[in-house]
Design a protein around this nucleic acid. Sequence first.
DNA 1: CCAAAATGCAAGTGTTCACTTGCATTTATT
DNA 2: AATAAATGCAAGTGAACACTTGCATTTTGG
Lengths: 191, 191
Amino acid sequence: MDKTSKKIIDAMMEIILERGYTGATTKDIAERAGINECTIFRKFKEKKEIVIAGMELPQYHPNITAETFADIKWDIESDLKMFMENYMKEVTPQFVRLSIGLRSPQIYQQTAPLIMDIPQTFLHALTDYLCEMKNKGKIRDIDCDAVASTVLSATFGFTFLSASFGNDLFDLERVKYIDSTVKSIIGGIAL
Amino acid sequence: MDKTSKKIIDAMMEIILERGYTGATTKDIAERAGINECTIFRKFKEKKEIVIAGMELPQYHPNITAETFADIKWDIESDLKMFMENYMKEVTPQFVRLSIGLRSPQIYQQTAPLIMDIPQTFLHALTDYLCEMKNKGKIRDIDCDAVASTVLSATFGFTFLSASFGNDLFDLERVKYIDSTVKSIIGGIAL
DNA sequence: CCAAAATGCAAGTGTTCACTTGCATTTATT
DNA sequence: AATAAATGCAAGTGAACACTTGCATTTTGG
């Protein structure tokens, strides 16, 4: 990846964050990248391609793979926390806001698979983990798919709502949220 | 609200669902509404106004108020289910997809408060409920804010992810998800 | 039936946008 | 130093878009 292309991608991503995909005009991109507008089209066939190329950079594509959740201790509390923490470490508020911009209908077809990949990886890893824990007899006889869905939704939901509405909605730190969520799901809130 | 304005709003909302706000051109809107383009501007000062007017219609604005969650039985299991079910009844997949379109930067400033209002109402109602349950000695001595945040996130997360990715992500019915989530949070999954 | 209001129709305006072209200049490679 | 590749510059193109105007026609309400 040459420097010029990188500058173009960076500028595009910055502006998508601020004003969305359609709000990112090639003129603006060129200005922010400090290059000439026509250079954009020497590097990329069309505007769309900038985003697609950008999403392939690790910088703009949270590195969530099976290995992200490999540090398992076979202790349900610390492991669930690890799952949630490692997800939130990769899926930053900035990426969430960016991914909203990447949902622009003009590019969604191309970006959707890459966006969906993240929850999917989380879900599979967690489901596998819970099943193993069940087999080991370390947790109750639960529906692993369903519980994994709950943890994913709780993790994604908090991440998304925090990124969208900031402290206007939640009056709660990430660490405290994870701690409380894990405790509830493990120990329950009933008497 | 006269019939013509309603037709314009309906057409606009339909197209936003399909192609987003910027993808909804006034020409398209007029065509789908079966009226002339210039009529749009006789009814609305500018394109933005169509969306704003639309969001004030109950049809396009989930009716989530304190009363939505008023049917409390003071039984933690059925009440939590009620909270989640009533949220999901109002916040349909269609509204979620629409609300993604309503995040277009050109209109987000106006639409954001109306969108944020929904999780906020849920959160307040649930926090109040949990505190009362705690005072009644019907649940453990939990952090009500934190647990309410977990339930909101789990509810919103599932709704949003389902609406976004459909069955490609979750292989799970709404009812089953709610049931499993509530059971986990109440009873825990630990031995 | 009549007047007023609403809508249609057709044409147009000015702007913005993605994308192009031809040529001059800079930068990198050998 | 010579050559080739990358970039700048300036101007432009054609299309699409939000929004307008003037006038004819239809619909509505008293």
